[in-house]
Amino acid sequence: MSLLLTLSGVNTFYDRLHVLKGASLHVNEGEIVALLGANGAGKTTTLRTVCGLLRPASGQVSFAGQSIVGRSPEALVRLGITQVPEGRQIFGPLSVQDNLLLGAYGRGRRAQRTEVPGDLARVFELFPVLAERRHERGGSLSGGQQQMLAMGRALMARPRLLLLDEPCLGLAPLVARQIMETIVALRAQGTTILLVEQNARAALRIADRGYVMETGKVVLEGTSEELVRNKDVRRAYLGKDYDEV
């Protein structure tokens, strides 16, 4: 198992607001790592720092052995880091297929000819419902389908590391489960995943390891079994009653 992503002592600010306070975490190749925590804990900020949308004031971020602090998001996509942001953000007026092709935009002209069609086929295989609706407007899809579309688009960039921000937000339980199963299938295909998810129970079910964040700091780290066994996690994030725990 090798280190794919590491953060060491990362401090990120929104203006003067100190949002990430020396956060450290890592993701090994082929893992699903979950980031848990309440709203405002710094989870999304962490993802945005990793994919280049935010620049840390101090600390180290490395990907595949090289430092990536200060690199642009586009450069990072080319390196293999792609984010699926919260709220999906697909292009409503464009067709499903065009949304997906846009995801491969950054890849070279040769790739467009030789690899992208194959990748598109694979995304349709992963998400059959997108295949059925390939020519429909993205905006006409249901919430769950849009989430799949957003993920499919990210996959078109052939990421080594996929950052998922609340993939199940606002989705019906059955659909959420499908999304989670898809994430597991992605791992099986060799994609490494860093997952932010409010639904801690669902996240820990599929994650290998997790980190719990509070007020910009990591307070707990462990395998998903360890996190599930931890009383504080059960109480705060798994919805167990005080009596039950």
Binding site: A23, S24, L25, H26, Y211, V218, E221
Partner: peptide, 10 residues
């Protein structure tokens, strides 16, 4: 060392 740092901070 990365693991130790994370766990120490936590």
């Amino acid at each position: 060392q990365q693991l130790q740092l994370e766990r120490l901070q936590a």
